[in-house]
Design a protein around this nucleic acid. Structure first.
Lengths: 201, 201
DNA sequence: ATACAATTCAACTATTTAGTTGAACTTATT
DNA sequence: AATAAGTTCAACTAAATAGTTGAATTGTAT
């Protein structure tokens, strides 16, 4: 009985690993069972079906990064340290879960309606405080007149893209694994400057 | 006999459609056959296996956008019109092939080594002329000192991200299909300014 | 200790999907 | 017209994969 939670957790960890790496269609229940070091029938005992297990993993995955990002956007910080914090948060998350961004992007596009319903129900929204902060910067003439939505999308996009495009980057710039990691380190420093300069008057 | 090329093309079109939408693992040979309006055995007659058909589609997909982007980078244009052209090229491509960027990102991450080998063999490389152009802008003090690689990645990332993150954007910013399209139109105008301002001294 | 419920697993079935085959048909060549 | 090569399809087999079952085991409460 004390095993119950532990086993369930073990399955979820394994499923997260495999689903995030291969996507729903590419994942095999057997592979998840192997990763969790249990029998395949346990997966069904705990989660009924591949689809139900996937739903849990997908929703957990979103809960894993979305609130953290929103928290940073909402934080009581000036724009410059806030962007720095945001970039740092993204790169830290990638270090822990390298497949997470691509996984979410792929799967939300496979079932956009299901995804939208979920995000709505969870109440994930861009904090109004951040939008106000942007508007204030613009009004006080310290920032170019940019649509706050554009600004958010640009920032997130600049964080995410080099992570999901890794094989492309490694190839065209002839980097090995170490050089790529080094490139990311350099980028972590340069990116906030790039973003802030882009909206500087 | 005159049908040969037509049928093969028909299959490739259908396969491109389905593979780009669902990915390799999510695609069904039957679905491709239905889309091409032919019998399933024809797929094997023309392409032997799902894997071989996929390889062809994947490589064609890359050939479809990579050279075009590189051509723009290599074009004899000043930086500002070149970035404008690049953004335009990306959005035009997305209009024609809405699943292409996400497809390539997903699949190149599933088989990075195979992908790298392919890109190497095709000889896709960032044109040296573009790197020189950036260096010259920096030396002549009209641009901040940015690693040309960063600059390229940022530009491509800013183009691609809003396309692959569509369901997310529609949800958090409460857009319907029309509003999203409108947002992209606005963005096509604003993005080059954002990029160029980001590297302006 | 006994009974009961929860847990585990090997072996199984059901379903989905890729791939094959052979006969019928079409087209080009002589 | 006869022949051969290429093309098409319905029906099939083979393989992969999700899901089930029932017996054995473990843990817990009385």
């Amino acid at each position: 009985m004390s095993e119950e939670i532990e086993t369930e957790q073990q399955i979820l960890e394994a499923a997260k690993q495999i689903f995030q790496e291969r996507g729903f269609a590419g994942a095999r229940m057997q592979e998840i069972a192997d990763e969790a070091d249990i029998n395949k029938s346990m997966l069904h005992y705990y989660f009924r079906s591949k689809d139900k297990l996937f739903q849990k993993v997908f929703q957990d995955s979103i809960r894993q990064f979305f609130p953290e990002i929103l928290k940073v956007l909402h934080a009581d910080l000036a724009l410059t340290p806030k962007i720095e914090k945001l970039v740092e948060t993204y790169y830290e998350m990638f270090r822990k879960h390298p497949h997470l961004p691509r996984f979410v992007i792929h799967e939300m596009n496979q079932h956009p309606d299901r995804f939208k319903e979920f995000v709505k129900n969870m109440g994930f929204e861009i904090p109004e405080t951040f939008v106000k902060q942007i508007r204030q910067e613009i009004e006080s003439d310290s920032m170019l007149n940019i649509d706050p939505r554009e600004f958010i999308i640009n920032t997130i996009g600049l964080c995410v893209f080099p992570l999901i495009a890794r094989p492309m980057i490694e190839t065209v710039f002839k980097m090995n694994n170490e050089q790529y990691q080094q490139f990311l380190e350099q980028r972590k420093k340069e990116l906030p400057k790039f973003i802030l300069n882009a909206v500087k008057k």
